[in-house]
Amino acid sequence: MGRLITKANNPIVLYVSGGNTQIIAYSRQRYRIFGETIDIAVGNCLDRFARILKLSNDPSPGYNIEQAAKKGKKYLRLPYCVKGMDVNFSGILSYMEDKMEDLLKEYTPEDLCYSLQETVFAMLIEITERAMAHCGSDEVLLVGGVGCNERLQKMMGIMCAERGSKLYATDERFCIDNGVMIAHAGMLAYKSGTRMDFKDTTITQRYRTDDVLVTWRDD
């Protein structure tokens, strides 16, 4: 889907949403997961942080953090947890939970939103860059709900420019519309010869990225 919209050829994919945080690259008929969160998803981290700060859920906690972060000025050093191509976020959350009262004496909520974004996005960019170096790829595709965040897109853009690589992103019409993605994957599978009676079809919500055999690519 992302390749169709953006015309990217064989990108490293950073998939960031409320439920998932994965670095994905294609190899031998599967989209393989090179790195991912080993505890909670980045979107989940943002949502829970918004709850600690009592930010509004309207239109979404992540959006409100993004807007507040634009007004943040003072940077607070937070736990930075990268292990190879994996990341974890729960340490940052518990740090914030434990110290919130004291922190708010020195920092505004906007400062904390800013610091959180700067920290977790830097972690994501770092593992993306490491995956690019590891796989020798010069394309990045940013997908998932958190992929709509403009600061994340900007940081990713800077990293790509410095490497001489290209960043592809889809806009929110495609970033979050799972129906279109499933339909498109189904069409690709159909075109490559998969056949099934409608009455035999089922739903698996927990399909992992690397469970799917990719029959529609021959590279």
Partner: peptide, 17 residues
Amino acid sequence: GVDLYVLERAITSTHND
């Protein structure tokens, strides 16, 4: 444990044959 996990992920994704 995490160090081993990082190795497992790297080995299984790079040397999937």
